[in-house]
Write a protein that binds this DNA or RNA. Structure first.
Lengths: 347, 347
DNA sequence: CTGTTAGCGCCTTCAG
DNA sequence: CTGAAGGCGCTAACAG
């Protein structure tokens, strides 16, 4: 049997006052006599009393908890975003519940339901690579729970979003490769479920076009980001009659896996340059170190949190809010390292 | 104004039955007429009804939620443990709330209080490197909330624990270095707040002693694991009149940072061998790749979860349980790679 | 300033 | 099989 948890009633009884007064004293309500307040606080301390947040949330229909759903937590990308978001949220007395989906759609739906049933006051999320149906997001909105998307977002849902300049980033990255003299630039693209894939692919294509380099479909492969398959695709590229002299990858794990394969047959960057995306923790450590596009991960989290707080604090006029959903676009930065033999000396 | 959330009362009214019946129908209670059950379920579906977990937990004093507190989430170590624990817990219908402390003691205490006030049904945790006082753990136990510690554990608290064979692992690692012919083996140890530091240090010392190699205190530095300082310590080692020919580090980030410094002056492993601990995600990618001690991270999580479930399901006899707290010790494995020039060919 | 009362949504006796 | 009533711990009116 669970020991009876001490409640305000216990304190009230012992002090011979009402539980309302205890409640008020505990929550710092101004209209409580100094003396009784102190008595209550002392006894609470002595009794090892602790508020039952469950009851509290239940009573005021507010939990002060924010749910964060990420597709996975093994990469530093999402961990960093979470840290950034928490930084902002904690200052406003909001606590966070983190849920991850191991890139599984069902788990994502499940997590949304969990958070809703836990009555969170807001949700920040990025969908899995399997997600095509966004009805669960609509559920969030029907429940009037503020929602902010980041990184992997969708046009199908009207909500504030935080993204980076994927298109420009890819464009600049590829243009940089072109300026290095590369002519046949291959691209390992992500699945079409992700906007990021499409934008980066488009940036790649447009950069080629701008510089009058033909877009060769043999040099573009779109895949589901499961690293094991990279080997196959890279070998395919290398075995082409006219193999690529550069490889632009959807993300760093892909690029790193690709380099492993390439290194057995060719020199990087002399024979082929490799470029990643996101600046994962390990991309500076590889041999050669990986040129990549750095994303402001902490800021993505911070911005998402700020947007969510705005959303929470401006609920009243629902109709107008609908049209005002902002999309914050953050800047990325091309980090030139050894894998492209760029301008930096290989320190 | 928040839209009234549809509750069992709404369903009851609409169907002209009592809320008790609705409640029973919803939770699959056997004694409900097939017909009414279906009616309830249908209407619930139609009304987009969703159980209010808050109210539910509140009513049964059970949340089916487990709290996991980790010191930080940027390294893959804790993320992996979390994934392992969730795997086991989800099967038993428990959900997880993840909290991290950015290695900050106050935040740890805060997280414990948060979880307790959220009425979680159990807590799995590993403390920060700042933690010296464990009163907040005692608070958990006074509340009769099952607790399991892993990795960074303490003797001051009686509870089930999951650890690895730190002592043996360090002993074997150092012995391996000795067998490679290394004579002056330095050790960058962790802070004394962590049992792991002490055990690994002891393993290091005993391995030297066994092989009649004098323990030189100039070759042992204990530090707080903040990577920025590694540079200073490593330089200090290299500048010694008789510098080390091997360096055994408390963890991989330390070893990787150390290699960066060393590489500017010496060859690895020819002049000096470097050995890490934990097999972080990036340690296979460095140049040279890092020899390290692999920890079974997922299993640590799984074991911790299992112990917690046992704890939860065996509450009745509190007194006897006290003495039965098991400590599960998992095996590590020495992963030989290039930084020690070991037996494996540098693939 | 403080006590009283009602209620948050659900489950669980206890009677039919 | 089903309805009525009470309670989980706390807050928020509404009186005094």
């Amino acid at each position: 049997m669970k020991k009876h948890q001490v409640s305000i009633i216990d304190i009230a009884k012992e002090l011979g006052i009402s539980k309302s007064t205890v409640s008020r004293a505990l929550s710092g309500h101004p209209s409580v006599m100094e003396k009784t307040r102190i008595a209550v606080l002392d006894l609470a301390e002595k009794l090892d009393y602790q508020r039952n947040t469950l009851a509290l949330s239940f009573a005021n229909q507010k939990t002060l908890v924010i749910g964060i759903i990420v597709p996975e937590i093994l990469s530093t990308f999402y961990s960093s975003v979470i840290i950034g978001a928490e930084e902002v949220l904690l200052k406003e007395k909001y606590r966070c519940i983190i849920c991850h989906c191991t890139e599984n759609y069902d788990r994502e739906v499940d997590n949304v339901k969990l958070l809703l049933s836990q009555q969170v006051d807001g949700i920040i999320l990025s969908h899995t690579k399997e997600t095509r149906n966004f009805d669960h997001y609509k559920l969030i909105q029907r429940r009037r729970v503020p929602l902010v998307m980041f990184n992997r977002v969708t046009d199908l849902i009207e909500a504030p979003k935080v993204v980076v300049d994927d298109y420009e980033a890819a464009f600049r990255a590829v243009e940089y490769l072109i300026k290095l003299g590369r002519k046949r630039i291959a691209h390992l693209s992500g699945p079409d479920t992700l906007v990021n894939s499409k934008l980066r692919l488009q940036g790649y294509i447009d950069a080629l076009k701008k510089h009058k380099i033909p877009v060769d479909n043999d040099l573009i492969i779109s895949y589901d980001l499961s690293v094991e398959k990279v080997k196959i695709y890279v070998k395919h590229f290398l075995d082409l009659p006219s193999p690529p002299d550069a490889l632009f990858c959807m993300n760093d794990p892909t690029a790193i896996a690709a380099m492993e394969v390439i290194k057995k047959r060719l020199r990087i960057p002399e024979d082929i340059a490799v470029l990643g995306f996101s600046n994962d923790g390990s991309s500076a450590l590889t041999n050669p170190s990986l040129t990549t596009v750095a994303q402001p991960t902490f800021d993505i989290g911070r911005e998402a949190a700020k947007l969510l707080l705005q959303e929470i604090n401006s609920e009243p006029d629902l109709e107008t809010a609908q049209s005002q959903h902002r999309t914050v676009v953050l800047k990325t930065k091309l980090l030139i390292r050894e894998s492209t033999g760029g301008v930096l000396s290989p320190k």
